[in-house]
């Protein structure tokens, strides 16, 4: 049974590894939309950033997974079962045809679990994508305007300027914000159990909780304290490793940039 506990650490790491790039993708799209000169698109981008950032992540997690699941099934239902005439909402029930079920009712258990995990990743990514969008938006605006004007003077189109000048340069400005976001993301993972994932907090509670001799061979009292202590160490370790890694990344990115950090690096190497 304890291997499930160890497995859940792996789950958390996997979630982090997948969520980070996906959230960055959402963030990039959001920032691009917010910068757009097409008003509805820019409104959409800004609305996404403002609304999702304005809501506590717990509140979001409480209903979003079910909403997402229903949205997927509803869409599939419309496409796969056009001849279906019964209403999808019958009173409290949400009913789609068998073929539209996600995953299919016949799928083995691991598919269901993977699907649940997938929903959690999407939910996390949407929430943290909004924060990332905000940071990237700031990063894009922090790139010195002269750089963009120079690009224009060279006859680059807006699109070329964006991809060749703005995007490569914005990272260094966005990195402090993004690394902070990464730290926040790590610390948001104890809420995974809200999304129906059996994560480390779930197992720490389950295994650490009072165990009655009747139902187990290893009875014990309330040991949650020790299990949570293990979690504490895990999180502190993650934070420390991330701090070191991000520090290195920052040094590399600062290389040759017109920032005080870049200036410092230049001095170090020439001195």
């Amino acid at each position: 049974m304890h291997w499930l506990f160890y497995l859940s650490f792996f789950k958390v790491l996997l979630l982090l590894a997948i969520t980070a790039p996906v959230a960055l993708g959402f963030g990039f799209l959001g920032a691009m939309a917010a910068r757009s000169h097409f008003p509805p698109l820019s409104l959409l981008g800004k609305g996404y950033i403002a609304i999702v950032r304005g809501v506590p992540d717990i509140a979001f997690f409480m209903f979003f997974v079910i909403a997402l699941d229903q949205a997927f099934e509803w869409t599939r239902h419309k496409i796969l079962c056009p001849e279906w005439t019964d209403p999808i909402r019958q009173g409290n029930d949400f009913i789609v045809c068998q073929a539209a079920k996600l995953p299919l009712g016949t799928a083995p258990e691991w598919v269901h679990e993977t699907y649940g995990f997938f929903l959690a990743v999407i939910t996390f990514s949407i929430v943290f994508g909004a924060f990332a969008a905000n940071v990237l938006f700031g990063g894009m605006r922090a790139v010195p305007h002269a750089q963009l004007e120079t690009a224009e003077a060279y006859g680059m189109t807006r699109r070329q300027t964006f991809w060749r000048i703005l995007v490569p340069q914005m990272w260094v400005y966005a990195l402090p914000g993004l690394s902070n976001l990464w730290m926040v993301l790590i610390k948001a993972t104890p809420l995974l159990f809200l999304l129906g994932i059996e994560d480390i907090v779930y197992w720490a509670r389950e295994l650490g909780g009072f165990k009655n001799p009747k139902f187990t061979q290893y009875p014990h009292g309330d040991w949650r304290m020790w299990y949570f202590l293990a979690l504490l160490v895990f999180y502190l370790g993650m934070t420390r490793i991330s701090e070191i890694g991000l520090e290195r990344l920052m040094r590399r990115l600062s290389h040759g940039q017109a920032t005080s950090g870049g200036e410092l690096l230049r001095k170090e190497t020439t001195a």
Binding site: L80, C81, Q98, A99, K101, L104, G105
Partner: peptide, 9 residues
């Protein structure tokens, strides 16, 4: 769709 439905049934 029909196939999937059949399989579901």
């Amino acid at each position: 769709a029909a196939l999937a439905l059949g399989a579901g049934m």
